[in-house]
Design a binder for these strands. Structure first.
Lengths: 187, 187
DNA sequence: GACGGATTCGGAATCCGATTCCGCTTAGAG
DNA sequence: CTCTAAGCGGAATCGGATTCCGAATCCGTC
């Protein structure tokens, strides 16, 4: 049960997949989810069929793009948030990034927060994000910034909320971040 | 500029509009947004054209249904939440209702939270909801349950978040309500 | 109570975009 | 260099929203 599932893809096929994904990321960032499959294909210099070969569904493509966003956020969190010794600031920084991602390219948003919140994340990016969250929360619990019973699920639920709020312009998400984090402090 | 905009609608037209809206509410509640315009038409016993006459767009129909939901929530809030002397409980009750609406008939959700959060609500239902929120917040500020600087916008931002979280099953929205409300307490 | 025009209705036709299909190409193993 | 399966392109198909317009209804008028 190891051969049939693992036939190495042709080199150019892989390159095409890369092109498509890259282009899709840009387009979705620019114009949100009004982007059409045909556009992506043209912009990537391939036929629709090729797009569909690599991403069997529009939804699948969107999920792939979303994973890219996650990767970016993860990278940002590691370099910009984690090092901040003030746990509260680190968390704010992390959540703020999520809001910003939606503010600029309002990309693929609908999928983002749904995935953000799920505790069973796709791929290692998700796993790493969870781990990173756990780290931050541990720190917070240790230095008394956070309640002892705060869970990663809580953090990502809040992350999902930030995503939704910023996506739909429901309100001032920066303010929301403050409120939510206040809600995690020890009573 | 008052005549051309106000030609009274034909009686049966109004009845049809009512039927359509009613049926749409039920269908959306049952099967979420996979419901098709043609289905609504058939279920209401009219042609598609008629549906479109009253709701020029699928989106418009959804918004109308959403307003119904708001009305229900408003009614519930007035009778079940407002009377509760404990402000915190009243707020919890209100927000919980929003989560429940999504849990049962997972209706029209996408639109709901977007509208919930906007500070410029459609129709009087929206206005009344804002007013009711203001009342609750005043009470909370007065009895020291809430920070002095809490705004209605905050409450509805949280409401929007609850809607999003419950809609996409991002996490335990009941827990989220607790966290968010804790975030509104005086420091 | 019948009449006439404006308003509505019904549902076939149209439009649009996602997805499928399949003959043609090309990478790359032997 | 040859042969074959993996990939490619893009026309055709499908599904569902939206438009169009002749037929059917209302309703104020006579």
């Amino acid at each position: 049960m190891s051969k049939p599932t693992t036939r190495k893809p042709r080199t150019d096929a892989e390159r095409n997949r890369g092109r498509v994904l890259e282009v899709a990321c840009e387009l979705f960032a620019e114009r949100g989810d009004e982007v059409q499959m045909a556009e992506v294909a043209k912009a990537a210099g391939v036929g629709v069929g090729t797009v569909y070969r690599h991403f069997p569904t529009r939804q699948a493509l969107i999920e792939a793009v979303t994973e890219q966003r996650f990767a970016e956020i993860l990278a940002y969190a590691r370099t910009a948030c984690l090092p901040n010794p003030d746990t509260r600031q680190a968390l704010t920084c992390f959540l703020t990034r999520i809001g910003e991602v939606h503010d600029e390219g309002r990309g693929v948003s609908s999928a983002i927060e749904a995935a953000l919140g799920s505790t069973e994340p796709r791929g290692e990016v998700g796993t790493d994000l969870l781990a990173l969250g756990e780290t931050l929360l541990d720190r917070g619990r240790a230095d008394g910034t956070l309640r002892a019973d705060v869970k990663v699920a809580d953090l990502y639920m809040i992350a999902g909320a930030v995503a939704a709020i910023s996506r739909d312009a429901i309100g001032d998400w920066r303010r929301f971040i403050d409120i939510a984090l206040d809600g995690l402090r020890p009573r």
